[in-house]
Structure formats: structure tokens, C-alpha cells
């Protein structure tokens, strides 16, 4: 595609540059970096507490085999139909015992409207807010928003204290360079637009389940 024509670009830039010739009246000097959040003594404990507040289901298991079983149980309670899974050796291995006849892997394309559930990994878990950070590597943009339930499979080693650490880590790993999509998810879709009454599942998933294996 041809480069965008931009007749006003130079004009706007020169207006900005001229405007900035005069310094702002109120210069607020940086006041040093005092912490704005209290330190978190026990990451997993905090993550679980935050999940309760966010209405996120958090399942902590001793190991991967236990996570596989926990997810099998959740899937057994869901209606029949396609489930969408992020392509990964680990999830392939786990899926073998889930007994779902219809699986679409992210290697086959993006998630579809018919998905009953999505199962993905994540880039990080954030203790302070009980959040999950996903990227387009986790099954694409649609994976974590289209299906009525999003199940996240994570290891305890992915749990970090706060957003600053999570963002620094993904940056270091080059995630923003390799992905055009990142999403910090804190709970499942909701709205309070009608009389401030909380309603779950406005557009995205009604349930967010995080399954953390400790080893």
C-alpha cells in the first residue's frame, strides 16, 4: 500500500515546536522515586486474594499433571463443541487426556465464534492486581475474548509482584517487538453501565480461570 499522504504533518509539527519554545509556567520537578505501592510479602497469597475480588477463578495445583486433571474437570462441565487451544508442546501433551473430540489449535488459525472455551498460556501473572498478561502469541487477539470461558495455564515461576516488573520482563524478552497485541486481563468481561449494577459477560468471557502449577 502507498505511503499515507500527510499534507498537514509539517504544519502540525512546526506548530508544536514553536509552542514549546516557551517553557511551561509550572515545572514540577521530579520528586524522586518513592514507592507508590506497598511491598507484597507473599505473592501467591496476594494473587489469590485479588482473584476473589476480581471474580477470577484461581486453581493452584502441585504439578502439571494435577493442572491437566483440574482442567479436564472444568471442561467436563462445559457444553459440547469446539475448544480453542494455543499451539504448544505442553498444551498438546495436556490435551491428550482432556477427551474433547473437537479441538482447534492456534496453528490452524484464529479462534472462532463457535468456541466453547479457550485454553492458553500467558506472559506473566501479576500478584498485586491478580492480573494475567497475555500477548498475541497466546492464541492471537481473539483467543482470550471470544469464547465464554478463558482458561489460563501458568507456572508459579511466572508470578511477578507488580505491573512494573511484568512490563520490564516482557520488554526484556522482546515480547512487544514480536507481538502486535498485549493484554493485561484482570477478571472477566463486565459492565456497570446500567444503574452501576455489575453485570458479568458484557462482550468478552463470562469466566476467567487461572490454573497455576507450583512445579
Amino acid at each position: 500500500m502507498a505511503a499515507t499522504e500527510n499534507p498537514s504533518r509539517e504544519r502540525i509539527l512546526s506548530r508544536i515546536q514553536n509552542a514549546l519554545q516557551v517553557p511551561a509556567h509550572k515545572y514540577s520537578a521530579p520528586q524522586g522515586a518513592q514507592p507508590i505501592f506497598a511491598p507484597i510479602p507473599d505473592l501467591l497469597d496476594r494473587f489469590q486474594k485479588e482473584c476473589v475480588i476480581n471474580i477470577t477463578e484461581c486453581v493452584v495445583t502441585p504439578d502439571r499433571a494435577a493442572s491437566t486433571a483440574a482442567i479436564a474437570q472444568i471442561l467436563a462441565g462445559l457444553p459440547e463443541g469446539e475448544i480453542y487451544i494455543q499451539e504448544s508442546a505442553q498444551l498438546r501433551e495436556m490435551a491428550a487426556s482432556w477427551n474433547r473430540p473437537s479441538v482447534r489449535w492456534s496453528s490452524e488459525g484464529g479462534s472462532r465464534e463457535v468456541s466453547q472455551a479457550t485454553i492458553t498460556h500467558c506472559e506473566a501473572l501479576i500478584a498485586m492486581t491478580g492480573s494475567v498478561l497475555v500477548s498475541s502469541a497466546c492464541g492471537g487477539r481473539g483467543a482470550s475474548v471470544v469464547a465464554p470461558i478463558h482458561i489460563v495455564v501458568a507456572g508459579l515461576d511466572q508470578l511477578v509482584p507488580d505491573l512494573a516488573v511484568a512490563l520490564a520482563q516482557v520488554d526484556e524478552r522482546g515480547v512487544p517487538k514480536e507481538n502486535s497485541f498485549l493484554c493485561l486481563t484482570t477478571g472477566s468481561s463486565r459492565t456497570a453501565d446500567i444503574e452501576k449494577i455489575l453485570v458479568m459477560g458484557a462482550h468478552g468471557p463470562r469466566r476467567l480461570v487461572v490454573v497455576i502449577h507450583q512445579q
Binding site: S180, F181, C183
Partner: peptide, 11 residues
Amino acid sequence: QAVTVYNTLVG
């Protein structure tokens, strides 16, 4: 809210 449900970065 501590953080909004979906904070997305897209490019």
C-alpha cells in the same frame, strides 16, 4: 478499580 478488566496494547 485497581486496574480496569482489559488494558490492551495494539499495533
